[in-house]
């Protein structure tokens, strides 16, 4: 079943076409890769998917709904989670608080009057869900440290955890392994497989680490200068001459 269906997404900035009629689809529970050289338009595409940028043309539908006029926070509530290439965490909060805020946001009851009546305090089932996700991501040991004290790698895992708390049907990961060392990358791959298996959440992965992409995903889309130059099963795409020329060169 098609979960995300983007067709003809076009976006230009001051005359430069960053996305030129990009079409991409992700099925429920599937892991899909989106690769391309720097500046190919991958992050722009993510921003269009989440409504942080408004595309000039094309349609994006998610779970059968047209997203064109839906603001970012509503798309998040529909079930699209994301992480950021330049890590975005809430300064001054612990990982546990990050996850808790996301859990509260998922429930969508941020009513002021409830706070005023003292109903805004953490509830046991909310805390239990937070605990469960902390364990899933092996974050328990770091759960109460200030976020500033964590390494970049752990910070990326907290971002994934925060996105997971919203119960996403689709998780958009923007270069999750950049800045991580070899061990951290391996650990991240395991976590992603785990998440995909246990939470049945589809993943759209933007990544430069080719071995990691090959190990995780079944299908790949390749962007170059804002245009889709190839798509298909991982093995076919990586064998494609145009892809090798544009992106991989002679590395693989």
């Amino acid at each position: 079943m098609t979960l995300l269906d983007a067709r003809g997404v076009t976006k230009s900035f001051a005359g430069i076409t960053a996305l030129d009629g990009v079409a991409l689809d992700v099925d429920a529970g599937e892991m899909v890769g989106l690769i391309g050289p720097n500046g190919a338009g991958k992050t722009t595409f993510f921003n269009c998917l989440l409504g942080m940028l408004r595309p000039d043309g094309g349609t994006i539908s998610f779970d059968g709904k047209d997203l064109t006029r839906v603001p970012t926070h509503r798309r998040a509530r529909l079930g699209i989670g994301r992480t950021f290439q330049r890590i975005e965490l809430f300064a001054g909060m612990t990982p546990r608080e990050h996850l808790f805020v996301a859990e509260r946001a998922r429930r969508g009851d941020g009513r002021l009057w409830k706070d005023l009546l003292g109903l805004g305090r953490p509830k046991p089932d909310e805390l239990a869900r937070v605990e469960e996700t902390l364990e899933l991501l092996s974050l328990t040991a770091d759960a109460d440290r200030p976020i500033e004290a964590l390494s970049l790698g752990r910070g990326r895992v907290v971002e994934i955890g925060r996105a997971l708390m919203t119960n996403p049907k689709l998780l958009l990961l923007d270069e999750p392994s950049s800045g991580l060392d070899h061990n951290e990358t391996a650990e991240l791959s395991q976590i992603l497989q785990h998440v995909n298996g246990e939470r049945h959440c589809a993943i759209l992965l933007v990544e430069h680490d080719v071995p990691m992409v090959r190990a995780l995903v079944t299908r790949v889309f390749v962007l170059d200068f804002g245009r889709l130059i190839a798509s298909g099963s991982t093995n076919d795409v990586f064998a494609d001459a145009a892809v090798r020329k544009a992106y991989i060169g002679d590395v693989v």
Partner: peptide, 22 residues
């Protein structure tokens, strides 16, 4: 309560807050 935590999140990072539905 919820409002205070959401405000903390928005202060921390507005885009990240939007990405979880705040």
């Amino acid at each position: 309560g919820t409002t205070g935590r959401f405000l903390d999140a928005v202060r921390g990072s507005q885009v990240a807050a939007a990405s979880i539905g705040i």
